[in-house]
Design a binder for these strands. Structure first.
Lengths: 216, 216, 216, 216
DNA sequence: GATGAATGAGCGTTCATTCAT
DNA sequence: TATGAATGAACGCTCATTCAT
């Protein structure tokens, strides 16, 4: 027959969001399995049992972390679409820079790595994430690309492959930030990196004759 | 008398590699923590105790998986360097296509995802992997880029940032293959993707006036 | 003006009894350990914390349930003794029928099963129950038996063993009602059963020669 | 990463039966919920994990305890039926005495109390027990009773009610032994009790005139 | 070498108990 | 008086690790 002891601290504002924030940070850092509920609770400043007032299980907490992380991404995308300029180059630049500013550089930036790591163990959740975040994000990019092609500004590249090629460096950077960056040298400046990505992707590696002429 | 009676007894020296192969596949699919030694043993067709004849612990097995995966990568890189043509474009193309052919499309292609997922839990190993694989790979790419710049074929882009931008789409594809590809639609053809990447990176998105002239 | 507008506020002094009633039902159904305080509170229509306004602990609640269940039993026994006819057969019949009517067929009928199940975990309480209920009940029965023996109506059977034999079928029926009856067929009609018990116990299984003569 | 410690004792003969025996004793003493797997393991001289080599869960262990306890009961019944004399009185006496000798006085004698206590939590198992043990046992008794009635030795009592009345005192004694007997005085001698039961049930409480004549 | 029964530390989960409101 | 959010000790169950065979 348990516990006659009991100091007590009331923490009325232990919102579910604080719990998912703590969980996100630890899941990203150590992975789902290797993260102990004790640690999550401690990081959120509550006791282990409190987690179960808000989530049915560790798995439910994980799903909440992902599901919750999806909303800001969608909203960011929709805001960008709404504010879209006519100029495809500007639009593209806005997309990529904003993704980093609103997602990649925040704790949400750990979600791609997390979801990637656990896709094999939570296929249904991965499917949901794919539909709601990935596919939708690519659709936005494809729109921008297509607009550029239609205006004769972009070459007629495959929009599906190209949209993937456009996000890959950003996701890669976010993944890096939440993995090797923690222990390995060679830190990359994110903004310079994103700028370089945009520049490379717009103009390519190779020297252009027309531009050479300008310089001459 | 014996016609095609296949290899009967496994050579003993092949045993550790069978174990690491099984471990790699499962670690990539489910993560290090979520993979049980039982499963690895079962997949390799041995009993659980046998693992301990070859590896001191689960962690040692993990390190062997990574360490072993490093060698082919280095060797591939060195072979490429040795076979390097003078033409930087060809060299770059060879690098990227070969990485996919020799690493990305094989079971080794799961290592980047695995190492990324577990970098937080095995920082020393991550550091080793970074030094021996990542940094060295980037050095190779930087060499190719620099050669192109020196020959006036490539623009004078930052070689550090650019080399990262060049690998990112390949790593991204490998990661995708070992995560979402298992449960989500929209399969990408790897070869077309790599080709599109090379094309995009060489020529950029935007229409070139000089090329337009060619078409006229 | 108020016609049949039912009792609105429960009288406060009735609250503890509502709690023990809910607890008794659940303890009997599921056992002490397997019953959660949540369930008891829910069944009584109060919150979990309210239980602690009336009982110090789950164990205290259990003791109250038993202790409270003891009183009606004693009172029933004393009433029977007071109303005792001289006729030992009538007295015996009254005892057994009344026990079923006042105890066995009411929620109190679950107490023997409950106390039996938990005697090992609450020996002090079991001792109390034994002294106050069981021993006293047997004493009443022994009195009736002895009276019959003294009057030459009953055979000179061992009063201690016989009193146990007389209650056993009643307790057995009550136990059955609160265990197998909930899930198994073959329902027994309690009144017929008690009648059969009295008949069997009075006359025995075997055919009597003197009675045979009556039939001839 | 766990356990570098490890003393080891091989106990090859830790049969499932030893585990169920330990579990039975503790389940009977303390109830299913209140019994810790640690205790069961300790009593059987194994570690907690060993239980899971033989049983999937605590509940599975419980079911095995009951299921296993059923077999000796059935076998005992069948042996009795096979050895049945023609004399119904002898047959009845054999039934009751043998039940006590083979079941009631052994550890199996705790099963009725255990099954009764947990019937509410394991209705399917209770149903199984009812069908395979209780109903079958009653059928045996009804056969003996009917035979007596047919031979004109027993009165024409309701066989269903009567068979229940015949077992009730035995089950009651077994229950008592595993509950109050552990903490309360007034120990009953089982053999004298069973004898008294048989005597009471055969001849009844009341004095018989024909027998009185014998004594005169 | 190879096995798999046995171990026990550790984790997810439950729930009796407390207390600020 | 009544509530229910918060607590944390305890338990069922897992699984990396060991070792007699």
């Amino acid at each position: 027959m348990p516990a006659k002891t009991a100091p007590r601290r009331r923490r009325k504002e232990a919102r579910p969001q604080e719990l998912t924030a703590a969980a996100l940070a630890l899941f990203v850092e150590k992975g789902f399995s290797a993260t102990r509920l004790d640690e999550i609770a401690a990081r959120a400043g509550v006791s282990k049992g409190t987690l179960y007032l808000y989530f049915d299980s560790k798995e439910a907490l994980f799903k909440a972390v992902i599901t919750e992380g999806v909303v800001p991404t969608i909203e960011a995308g929709e805001a960008l679409l709404a504010a879209s300029a006519d100029d495809p180059v500007t639009l593209l630049r806005t997309f990529l820079l904003s993704w980093w500013a609103l997602i990649g550089s925040t704790p949400l930036g750990g979600i791609p790595k997390l979801m990637m790591s656990e896709a094999g163990n939570f296929p249904a959740l991965a499917r949901y994430y794919d539909e709601v975040v990935i596919q939708r994000g690519h659709a936005l990019l494809r729109t921008a690309i297509q607009r550029g092609v239609d205006q004769g500004i972009f070459r007629a590249l495959d929009p599906v492959l190209t949209s993937t090629l456009l996000v890959a460096p950003l996701v890669h950077l976010a993944n890096w930030k939440h993995s090797f960056a923690g222990c390995c040298g060679g830190n990359i400046d994110p903004l310079a990196y994103v700028d370089a990505h945009i520049d490379l992707v717009l103009h390519g590696l190779t020297v252009r004759h027309d531009e050479q002429e300008k310089h001459s």
